[in-house]
Design a protein around this nucleic acid. Structure first.
Lengths: 151, 151
DNA sequence: AAATAAATGATACGATATATCATATTTATG
DNA sequence: CATAAATATGATATATCGTATCATTTATTT
């Protein structure tokens, strides 16, 4: 597990640079996702929050805070599973033009791999041929990680 | 609009080849998606079914039939929008290793483009480097189609 | 300190999806 | 054909995911 404090500090800086406020609750949401390590549904976050703080938080608030964190690029949502996870690259300088997630259907862990230049170019090319203007591609690839493949 | 009858005939053949039964209700589900032209939620399919036949069908049944059609490769589900659409390649001989969907956020139309060899290779390479065993990638790319871009 | 803006809470509800058991239909087999 | 087995569908309930709306609190500006 990477140093969560370090990630949080960087998140703080990122938000400041973007003129966004990382409130203590928003920070807590990010902490929960970082500690979980695997993607969580919004309602799982609600539950983790309750477990950590002994206070309840409305699901509505969690959704809003996750939306905020996504807008800052600190959290991603996996469309294929309706779950949220902390960005794996908060402390590095990647842009996130085309995040690719390798989602293990065995143990639920996710590897967020960086943008492969070759891949992104091939993607752009095949899309431009269709006269389509891309927003932001997000690749979610399901399979088995090395550990689960051997089970 | 492509000839729906032709697509249905091919669907019939595909099912026979796979030892699967394309019942009249399942066939109706596929027809509804083909006629709709845009992706539909399961509950929209329920509604279309009622409009067409004046009979109601349980959502549960629709989900099951859509699952069946997906297992035959006749229908795809868009994870990013929780909607279903008829495969755009039923009458051609594509394998569907890596379907790519260009989803227009303006008008909801979807272009299902074929597997680009270069892209698929780049994808495989970046994945294998992570010792990950892919199930079946499905790329969902959001953006604007040519028409909507000019609005 | 007052006015404004931003964030969060509270409540209700809509949309998506599945579990489970019952019934009907089709297929296989004696 | 008759019956058993398998497959498909219906019916019902409920879990899960997500948003609309209005109230309240907290932070920022002046």
């Amino acid at each position: 597990m990477a140093d969560i404090e370090k990630v949080l500090s960087q998140a703080e800086i990122t938000c400041q640079q973007q003129g966004a406020r990382l409130t203590s609750k928003r920070r807590m949401m990010l902490t929960i996702l970082l500690e979980a390590g695997v993607p969580c549904s919004a309602y799982e976050v609600v539950e983790h929050y309750r477990a950590k703080t002994d206070e309840t938080i409305p699901a509505m608030s969690v959704y809003r805070m996750l939306d905020f964190l996504m807008a800052q690029g600190l959290v991603h949502k996996l469309a294929s599973t309706n779950k949220f996870l902390a960005c794996g690259h908060i402390t590095c300088s990647h842009s996130h033009q085309a995040p690719q997630f390798l989602i293990c259907d065995g143990c639920q862990t996710v590897q967020e791999i960086g943008v492969d230049k070759t891949l992104f170019n091939a993607l752009q090319k095949s899309i431009n041929q269709q006269h389509f203007q891309l927003n932001s591609p997000q690749l979610e690839l399901h399979g088995l990680c090395e550990d689960c493949r051997h089970d």
